[in-house]
Design a protein around this nucleic acid. Structure first.
Lengths: 273, 273
DNA sequence: AAGAGTATTTCATAAGGTGAAATACACCAT
DNA sequence: ATGGTGTATTTCACCTTATGAAATACTCTT
């Protein structure tokens, strides 16, 4: 049985079939080798005939297509829709030239994320030929508490908002370096803010270090962040220092374009001022 | 009333509510300023209470989120799913370094498309600071008969397949330069094949010229194409010649990586050999 | 040619999608 | 504060429609 569907299955008798459809979409997208009608029927414990109708509908709308072996694979409809959604992120267009700059100067993977509730979502990722392959992907969400970009965002949040965040979110160990004690995190964020940039030293993925800086909007709120990611071996303390000044400058340039006035008097509720 | 939904409404009594859900997703994605529950109810002629349930479901699954003004806007779930689908396109990873090369050499927008039935779909788009803004977008589908990349694909198709395509597809004028007579198109494709690359001279969008070259797989079938797009003014005949040789080389390099053996004896059913 | 697996179609039944109405909520003007 | 308007959310009984069984068509193997 497909787990995601079951998790949400408890809330009964409210648009069960549309709910099933969304779960099927998810299932198909995450099935690398394609799915058959029988697979869908099995995974969602429904009849073949019914599963068939769902696939027919998804095919009609371009969400799935049949490949050579007659298995259903995701069509490009989702790519199209996702790409339209991504276009709405105005920050992306503003930031892109600056990100290319940064990538050219550092020859590392450069990411742009926006805050999405208690998460950060990648909206741009620039890879260089030399940069190490990472599991990150545009549209992917990452926790705020463990990532360089997320910690940059948290560090520039008004203290009440940070406290609310900490009361809502459980800090889970992603590696054994992840900070999971709220007190420690608050202290760490205080240092981050004083320093001007955030560091992720294998707190998400072993072997990966990142430097991140927050992007602030017209009233000083952190709406996103920029990060540079690289392998633990390459990103030495010295190099991090160098990248930190580049990324801080880059993030500030973007912030200015969003109307940020470059100082603290417009942001009275800061955590550490 | 939202048109797309109506078009497909005729096929009755088969997963009507899941169908409605897909139409609502489409509607929300294409509503730039966000939608309210009332908007959805109105556009799909349903009760407010019911529209609300659809929005609740979509919110639960991350397909929509509420913005500051409490309007529903698309969430990042679609970006995530679209991005996973895009990852499945192996050609994309193989081609990307070559595309960057091409973009660096030409300072124009470089596109990668794959064939998707009777359409070509953008799977990569590299823009340069200097390049003109175009309406193309990753995931967007374009006709084969009017675009440089599409005509490159058609020109390398076995003649029976080309005939089948022409019998299926109506050639619609996108601009007054679009070739809409099948005979003329076949003749044009013959020239294209002899030349080695395809040209789109304002056949899709006024003011835009493109050069395209097909990517051939291990058995010589065109699975996609590369294109360079630029403004009519900049892309002079001379520059097109220069770009043509670059793009033909680029497409061939990619084809070789797909296992193409670089000559015609492996492809006996070609249209014009 | 037979057989096994899969895909489609048909159809009666019960699950659940539906809108009316009631309630709660938010915002604006007085 | 107070009332009013527009929107969001919940509840509930009806009847549309989503559902699986079974029959049929379609592909592959053997």
């Amino acid at each position: 049985m497909y787990s995601h569907f079951n998790e949400l299955k408890d809330k009964k008798s409210s648009l069960e079939s549309p709910k099933k459809l969304l779960s099927i979409i998810d299932y198909i997208v995450r099935s690398p080798q394609g799915v058959s009608v029988a697979d869908v029927a099995k995974n969602f414990s429904m009849s073949i005939s019914n599963a068939f109708k769902y696939m027919k509908l998804l095919e009609e709308y371009g969400f799935v297509v049949k490949d050579q072996s007659k298995k259903y694979i995701p069509g490009f409809k989702l790519v199209d829709l996702g790409s339209i959604v991504l276009r709405r992120v105005g920050l992306r267009d503003i930031a892109r030239p600056h990100l290319f700059d940064l990538a050219a100067k550092t020859h590392q993977t450069v990411n742009l994320v926006v805050r999405d509730g208690d998460w950060a979502v990648y909206v741009e990722k620039i890879e260089c030929a030399e940069s190490m392959p990472l599991m990150s992907r545009i549209g992917m969400q990452m926790p705020l508490y463990s990532t360089s970009f997320g910690k940059a965002i948290l560090a520039w949040l008004p203290s009440e908002e940070l406290q609310e965040y900490l009361s809502r979110v459980k800090l889970v160990k992603r590696t054994n370096k992840t900070i999971t004690e709220p007190q420690k995190l608050v202290e760490h964020l205080k240092q981050t803010r004083q320093r001007g940039y955030a560091i992720d030293d294998e707190e998400n993925e072993y072997g990966v270090r990142c430097v991140g800086a927050a992007i602030l909007n017209h009233d000083g709120k952190p709406v996103g962040a920029v990060s540079i990611a690289g392998s633990k071996n390459k990103l030495t303390a010295k190099l991090i220092k160098r990248y930190a000044s580049l990324i801080t400058y880059c993030a500030m340039e973007i912030s200015k374009k969003l109307g940020y006035k470059g100082s603290n008097e417009f942001c009275p509720n800061q955590s550490f001022s």
